[in-house]
Computed example of a mutant assay.
Amino acid sequence: MARRKKIYEGKAKTLYEGPEPGTLVQYFKDDATAFNAEKKDVIEGKGVLNNLLSEYFMTGLGQIGVPTHFLKRLNMREQLIRSCEIVPLEVIVRNFAAGSMSKRLGIDEGTQLPRPIVEFCYKDDALGDPLVSEEHIAAFGWASQQDMDDILSMTLRVNDFMSGVMLAVGIRLIDFKIEFGRVFEGDFQRLVVADEISPDSCRLWDIETGRKLDKDVFRRDLGSLTDAYSEVARRLGVMPNTPPKGGKPTLVN
């Protein structure tokens, strides 16, 4: 069998050509990076967990009418997705102050914000994904005004969904980032949630203890990243409550 053609490789995922036109295969790696890839490691099982959790969230969004690029999970590390033109923005929703917002504005981490705050960053690793305004986005043509209206509306729906899902299992959704892509259907296009939704792209704190269950565990050397992600997966019911011997994640179909 011929090896699939690699389309793109990022810090945490690799994209290959899909079996049908308009599809791609998204492979989740075990690589962990932080601080714009200044800190790196390989965490066994991380890719499996992110594949499983992203499937869970993308499927849930589809069920409430939020379109995504996700089609189906293929195996432990791969999922079939729709090919799309990525909007060059990271869209960040903050429900509580943490990370860079706390540093920029001098707000204590964990402070609840008056309302969800949506921020935009320009996707460019060489520049460190700088924070940009809607004025920048319009001026440089990264997205139209209609795109921005749709992105904001969909982003807040994702926040409502994610916050509710996490609250139900005792986890506080501090913040998260998502990306959007344009899917072309004949002469028309529509926006879909793309990339991934996983603990790599969220801040998740246990409501009772404040324990971090996201990539801050890796950023701040707070313990086992696999244990943290596995805890999220177990609470959501997509992994057994008792981890298998050897500590490797096991899927529940």
Rank of each mutant, 00 (worst) to 15 (best):
residue 242 T to G: 15
residue 234 R to W: 12
residue 130 P to F: 09
residue 95 N to L: 02
residue 36 N to S: 12
residue 142 W to H: 08
residue 234 R to D: 12
residue 47 G to R: 12
residue 95 N to K: 04
residue 20 E to L: 13
residue 65 G to A: 11
residue 178 I to K: 02
residue 217 V to A: 10
residue 92 I to E: 11
residue 211 R to F: 08
residue 50 N to T: 03
residue 215 K to E: 02
residue 113 L to P: 03
residue 78 E to V: 02
residue 118 V to K: 00
residue 37 A to G: 07
residue 124 D to C: 02
residue 110 G to P: 03
residue 72 K to N: 06
residue 20 E to W: 06
residue 41 D to F: 06
residue 66 V to G: 05
residue 1 M to P: 11
residue 18 G to I: 09
residue 6 K to I: 11
residue 4 R to I: 05
residue 77 R to L: 08
residue 50 N to G: 01
residue 35 F to R: 10
residue 10 G to C: 06
residue 249 P to Y: 15
residue 155 T to P: 07
residue 90 E to G: 03
residue 42 V to F: 10
residue 190 R to V: 09
residue 114 P to K: 09
residue 192 V to D: 11
residue 84 C to P: 01
residue 252 V to H: 14
residue 54 S to M: 10
residue 168 A to R: 05
residue 126 A to P: 02
residue 24 L to S: 02
residue 209 T to D: 14
residue 183 V to F: 14
residue 203 R to C: 03
residue 69 H to E: 01
residue 82 R to K: 15
residue 137 I to T: 07
residue 123 K to I: 00
residue 203 R to P: 08
residue 15 L to H: 14
residue 126 A to H: 13
residue 230 S to D: 15
residue 126 A to K: 15
residue 189 Q to W: 13
residue 29 K to C: 04
residue 72 K to C: 06
residue 165 V to S: 10
residue 10 G to T: 09
residue 176 F to N: 10
residue 185 E to V: 06
residue 172 R to D: 01
residue 58 M to I: 06
residue 18 G to R: 14
residue 67 P to L: 06
residue 48 V to D: 15
residue 175 D to W: 05
residue 78 E to I: 01
residue 232 V to Q: 11
residue 43 I to E: 06
residue 185 E to G: 04
residue 231 E to S: 11
residue 46 K to W: 11
residue 250 T to K: 15
residue 215 K to T: 07
residue 91 V to Y: 01
residue 134 E to C: 07
residue 179 E to Q: 14
residue 221 D to F: 08
residue 227 D to S: 14
residue 58 M to T: 03
residue 218 F to Y: 13
residue 214 D to N: 06
residue 185 E to P: 00
residue 26 Q to S: 10
residue 132 V to T: 03
residue 111 T to L: 07
residue 44 E to A: 14
residue 95 N to A: 04
residue 196 E to H: 14
residue 155 T to R: 00
residue 211 R to M: 09
residue 181 G to I: 09
residue 227 D to T: 08
residue 185 E to Q: 12
residue 150 D to L: 08
residue 113 L to T: 06
residue 85 E to H: 07
residue 108 D to G: 00
residue 161 F to P: 02
residue 27 Y to C: 14
residue 19 P to Y: 12
residue 19 P to A: 13
residue 87 V to M: 05
residue 116 P to Q: 00
residue 190 R to E: 12
residue 152 L to N: 07
residue 247 G to M: 15
residue 245 K to G: 14
residue 235 R to M: 11
residue 168 A to K: 09
residue 14 T to H: 03
residue 217 V to L: 13
residue 98 A to I: 02
residue 182 R to L: 12
residue 244 P to M: 13
residue 104 R to M: 00
residue 55 E to S: 10
residue 109 E to H: 03
residue 150 D to V: 10
residue 137 I to G: 04
residue 95 N to Q: 00
residue 221 D to I: 09
residue 1 M to I: 07
residue 149 D to P: 08
residue 250 T to M: 15
residue 127 L to K: 01
residue 161 F to I: 03
